[in-house]
Write a protein that binds this DNA or RNA. Sequence first.
DNA 1: TGACCGACGCGTCATCCACG
DNA 2: CGTGGATGACGCGTCGGTCA
Length: 255
Amino acid sequence: MWWPQHNLCFRHPIEEDYSSGDLEKKVSVAGSSTGRGSPAVTLVQLPSGQTVHVQGVIQTPQPSVIQSPQIQTVQVATIAETDESAESEGVIDSHKRREILSRRPSYRKILNELSSDVPGVPKIEEEKSEEEGTPPNIAAMAVPTSIYQTSTGQYTATGDMPTYQIRAPTTALPQGVVMAASPGSLHSPQQLAEEATRKRELRLMKNREAAKECRRRKKEYVKCLESRVAVLEVQNKKLIEELETLKDICSPKTD
DNA sequence: TGACCGACGCGTCATCCACG
DNA sequence: CGTGGATGACGCGTCGGTCA
């Protein structure tokens, strides 16, 4: 379970959608690390089947891979228990559930926090102009080249982590959405109603785009976590092997 | 072949939160 | 403090896989 907040502690039924077993099982590791001392190049296979060459080793001490640095885990778990008991009584309604489960920190925020802790985790960049190049601080992890095309812009991920570029909206509004008239020019209730409708349509349209973008970022975030898990698994395996080797060397010979 | 299921994407609403 | 962007929650439709 990847959820940044109540991972490992609690899974609410309504989160089933996002807890696809696929995500938890698809990451496989090729494990072709180079020898000791040399810069490790790790071949990691992502769920999509793509292989990722990961350079460098994440060395910063860190909590569990799937644990968020947020402290809310305990809080949410506690609340969740009351939630479950309430549910068993059949009292809880959707509104309550919303209140209880609402608001987790944004993926961008979480990822950026992770990246500040761990050099190997790239940041989800703020929206950039097309002219800007790839920032130097995201060169630690290689991700297959891909291009995301959204209605608001083209997202390119070339080599390293996805750095996405958003074109300035060339067409201000789609057909059917008319720019609002200035408030001073509104007179009749009908005009006011039309204005309200326009505003609503505009808001819905923007939210539609925002939701798409949010989902894209969410996927990116999950991919990033998967990559990180894969890297750490390789690392872990390597360390275990190293430990065994050292044990062999240090143990008194019996024969 | 139709029923069923899980995954996925989308649109919308509600809410949080940063910013001016 | 109002506003707008970000995002969780929810419901719905679609698609592909599986099974009787």
